[in-house]
Amino acid sequence: MLLDRNGGFRPDSWRHLADDEAPADGEAVTISFKRWQAEPERWSDRTRPLGLRLSNDVPPAAFGPAATRFALIVLNFPRFIDGRAYSQARLLRGRFGFKGELRAGGNVLRDQLMFMARCGFDSFEVDAERARAENWPQAFREFEQFYQPAADRRETILRQRLRSWQTAAE
């Protein structure tokens, strides 16, 4: 099941192809980065919504330029303490102009959701039963303001202060 940044649950409508599986006509599928690299022309016909599954050790220079080709990118957290995909997400959003759906897969837990959402993730592969029991949607609302700029483009505390000082000075 997927949890959305806005707190809603929905089923996954994408099929995630293994590297030796063939897609049906017009079906929305994700493929691995390895498969994309091996035969980019095969997947460039644009007759279907195409998604990419990216492992967290692929350097930005390799995946960045092609990012806008995809409607969905799934980043992976092999263990929740492995935070490489946070930087991948920041770069996809901030530097490579990726506007599609950014999804977090793997070991996704409640207390990482806020960080993920701030780095640009839209959806999260979760155990729906546990997520409902522990009220995971609340995790997106635990803080009102933040100190750092991030992919959510919320105004930082520092910028808000600066604005209020400038208003006071006028």
């Binding site: 929740f80 303490i81 492995d82 935070g83 946070y86 930087s87 920041r90 990482q112 806020m114 960080f115 701030r118 780095c119 803080f143 933040f146 100190y147 750092q148 991030a150 505390i157 520092l158």
Partner: peptide, 13 residues
């Protein structure tokens, strides 16, 4: 200190 508090990208270094 403020910039580093609960940093979204660097909390799982």
């Amino acid at each position: 200190r403020q910039w580093s508090a609960l940093h979204p990208e660097f909390s799982f270094l």
